[in-house]
Write a protein that binds this DNA or RNA. Sequence first.
DNA 1: ATGCCTATCGAGGATAGA
Length: 265
Amino acid sequence: MRLATWNVNSVKARLPRLLEWLAEARPDVVCLQETKCAAEAFPVAEVGELGYEAAAHGDGRWNGVALLSRAGLADVTPGFPGEPGFGELDSVGAARPEARAIGATCGGIRVWSLYAPNGRTVDSPHYAYKLAWFAALRDALVPELAAGPLVACGDYNVAPTDADVWDPALFVGSTHVTPPERRALAELRDLGLTDVVPTPMKGPHPYTYWDYRAGMFHQNKGMRIDLVYASADVAGQVRSAYVDREARKGKGPSDHAPIVVDLER
DNA sequence: ATGCCTATCGAGGATAGA
């Protein structure tokens, strides 16, 4: 089974690139993030022509996650139990969750496509929201992991180590590298999840994101913030994994590259 | 190292991303 995860930064704007990439890489299961489209606006027919079933969870303008599969797509779950929201409070004092998680069972694996909150700055309410979201995700994954094989893929918006950012000194005091964010990842791994680190196609660092500006991709000044966290049984079946930096090149790319994982199953 | 890009909504400029 070939599994992939990709923050496409708008599925509408990226549709030609996405379809081209699907036809070439031919993954069996794909986790998409930042689709930036409502569930009913997701290009189901277009990916269907390539043989994929699709499940989308969307807010419209922001966020949005989806799953594509040609290995079955059952028990689709938009969001997870206890997922915190952000913004205006409803009558019972709760904020509506954003479209940041979707799960489904594909080919015998429970697959989650995740888009963690950015956090903005450490003194922002968005940062507290980010940490609360990770804590709730951890709790929600406990019963999921007990049930069988699982992968939680996506844009975690956290660089696990200083080696995962091109210049750690520039990031001191910024989000994506703070100890509480890294602890949140460690707590997920403590549940029994393994960080499936992909092979970079170029250079020593498996970066998955490069800013659009100032020739960052060209200079390979990137970050590894897209992650594949696999349960022990799935991690043991990983044959290979790589960052497809070719997909970051050319006209109209996403600012993230896909991660492709080949499993012995 | 922020908003020098990019995308969205909507018709200009605000909001968001990491």
